[in-house]
Design a protein around this nucleic acid. Structure first.
Lengths: 411, 411
DNA sequence: GTCATTCTTTTTCGTTGCGAAAAAAAGATA
DNA sequence: TATCTTTTTTTCGCAACGAAAAAGAATGAC
């Protein structure tokens, strides 16, 4: 049973509306916000006045270099000092964190290489806490309250519980990162799937192409997917969902890292390509990690001449293509962004992918399909993680009114 | 850019809220509605007064047989005479239509067997118009305004355009049933996918099991799916979506009715089971229609002794199982309802289905999965079609206020 | 049979939030 | 300097909600 709408909800939603317009539009004037939201000028004026009094908005000094007649518009902007967040990206052998202000700028960042595969559970948690702690300790402005910590992790997460259920970066499972971080710092913490955050970032970066419906595929040792449908991030009903890499490609086929047989990943993950190129059968146990240079070498060999390497990439592209075909049977075709190490070898993958897709119902008009490739996933992941947390704050925290504790220390 | 909320939207949404509570709860009192919606008593009183004045609601005479003290609650109910709709189900060789009043009761119905496969395009349209026309002509109360016609069709539909894009019941494609019906009767008409309507009906019938997340699979000559996720009917971004039957089962495998190879349907559709049981290879062209009695005979043989028939059912169950595994990799597992002729053979399918699912990541804890079977799909389809149209009316028409034309002829 | 009790529904009143329109502000242009 | 143009703020009226009081409609106690 859906709940009715109270009168007070109205202001809350419209405040959230204004904040999200601000975040999208950068430095809009009140009039522009009014036009974007469809609300009247007076309403925007009232709401923005409130937001400014609460310290969330600033009147920009930049006089909006419009050479128009009439009273010049005054630019508004999100107040960077209103609060800040910490975005953490934990991936294979890499731990990266950044302090981000309310306007979305990186204030400080840290990166550390850690052997995630061999670290114990406690040591892994300790490293994570450490990176966050040093960010919190060294920030300049004490007044900048950090009100949220968001962690993007490769693997399956339970967002509601703040738990990492399973991840390829460690043998340990069911680590309640969220609860642990909250207990340590007293700051709300959420856990997100890395591929979902990549999709969020794409939407911010390239809205003209990746807006309401699109797919982002992360090709590395494993295969991950982020999916937007009808303008909404698609997640599972309980878990982070969208385990594209473990859709079935060939029943009873090659051995996958997950222990089953025939998953897409068992044909298209780095380890699978490596295995096929080396002539290993599908029964060989998956290798935990293939170095980037080794994969590059493999790709170069495949480019150079026909042989097992090229065939391995062909089979990978085929698996991904059929998978996309099945996906598109369910949701209609959409633009695809290939992210991660696999994007470097996209020239080897594209053709077999397109051929496979064209053999599916989902791939009707497969030639219309657009693919883009972006090898560097870390910046995307962090950006998405940050924007996800900030928009959450806009909608769930600041739409309700001022923060409970006092904000202005000066004066 | 999402739109801001105006003041007038508030009342509209809350009216819709009250109407949907009414529809779900049957004959609730104002107090019960207030509790369900979270709105205050006074608001519900005001809204229901308005709805009664507009003729949408009635105060029930039934004195709500509560033996409690205090002022007795007075039951409200949807006014059956407020309007009515026509729900049409067009499936293989069968055309069925019903006139449904605003409270959801069937006022009149008609059914006709027509040879959909051999009829020409115009003849098919003529039959459809004919059934609707006779319902409209013979209804008793002229005052009962029919304000919507909803057609459920097997196949792929474009809901926005009101077009049937492709259907197994006829060789003709791209028939704009919606526009044609609207032009003929001057009544808004929508086209829906039959499996989606089945899912809608299940949600109404058995909300305790099929509520927020569930799958309904229609197993007949083709394979269709209806899917609810997070309480929302899942549809494609453009088409009706959810073409489960054309997800890829075995790349390059058996020939499917859609012209591709290896679709789930090419292993689990009636024609595929028949083909496998008869020892025909996967290269044989699919048969358009297998009679129900023939399929029953096939199933009986499979039950009786091991042999090609049983093997055919095993392969069908396997294909469906792997498909569900892939689906559940994307959306997390959910209860499944098997509908249609295939439900009669569910005893033959269940075991291979469960075995296949257990071999997928999506099928973790496959033993928890629940399956139900309901052979008779027509009543479900019609019920879903009707409820879908009625809830649409609640939300989009009546939430805006009284209908433009006068409603009360009496007095 | 009358009155107290109990619960539902309606009414009254105060508050909030929106939009329209008027007023004020801040330049550009003549 | 006066006029024009556009933005922003202010004022005012209206719609909708909730709280609380009042009215209504029964049951149960005496």
């Amino acid at each position: 049973m859906t709940a009715g709408i109270r009168h007070e909800d109205l202001r809350r939603r419209n405040r959230a509306m204004v904040l999200s317009s601000m975040r999208r539009m950068g430095q809009p004037s009140r009039t522009e916000i009014a036009a974007a939201t469809g609300l009247s000028n007076s309403t925007i004026s009232a709401i923005s006045a409130g937001l400014m009094q609460e310290g969330l908005l600033l009147e920009g000094k930049s006089e909006m270099a419009n050479a128009k007649r009439g009273r010049p518009q005054v630019a508004l902007e999100l107040n960077p000092c209103a609060c800040s967040i910490v975005a953490v990206v934990l991936s294979l052998n890499s731990l990266s964190a950044a302090l981000i202000d309310y306007a979305g700028s990186v204030v400080m960042e840290g990166h550390k290489r850690i052997p995630t595969l061999t670290l114990g559970k406690d040591a892994l948690v300790a490293e994570l806490l450490d990176v966050i702690r040093s960010l919190l300790r060294h920030r300049k402005e004490k007044a900048e309250r950090v009100i949220r910590i968001s962690i993007a992790i490769q693997g399956i997460t339970d967002c509601a519980e703040g738990t990492m259920l399973w991840s390829p970066i460690t043998a340990h499972t069911d680590i309640a990162f969220g609860r642990i971080v909250e207990a340590e710092f007293g700051i709300p913490c959420t856990i997100e799937n890395d591929c979902n955050m990549i999709a969020v970032a794409l939407r911010w970066r390239t809205p003209e192409r990746f807006r309401d419906n699109f797919v982002s595929l992360l090709l590395s040792n494993g295969i991950g997917m982020g999916l937007f449908l009808k303008g909404q991030l698609f997640t599972g009903t309980r878990s982070s969902g969208g385990e594209f890499g473990h859709m079935m490609h060939r029943p009873g086929g090659a051995l996958c890292r997950c222990g089953r047989r025939g998953c897409i990943e068992a044909y298209a993950g780095n380890y699978a390509i490596w295995r096929n190129a080396r002539g290993g059968g599908g029964d060989d146990l998956p290798i935990a990690d293939i170095s980037q240079s080794e994969m590059r070498h493999l790709a170069d060999t495949a480019r150079d001449h026909d042989g097992p390497e090229r065939e391995a990439y062909r089979r990978a592209g085929e698996a991904i293509g059929y998978g996309l075909g099945s996906l598109f049977a369910l949701v209609d075709p959409a633009p695809v962004m290939i992210v991660g190490a696999g994007a470097e070898a996209f020239d080897l993958l594209e053709r077999p992918m397109r051929e496979a897709i064209a053999r599916t119902v989902g791939g009707q008009n497969a030639s219309d399909l657009t693919f883009d490739a972006e090898p560097n996933e870390l910046p995307l992941t962090r950006e998405g993680c940050a924007m996800h947390a900030l928009t959450f704050i806009d909608h769930e925290i600041f739409s309700n009114g001022p923060l409970p504790l006092e904000r202005t220390k000066a004066a």
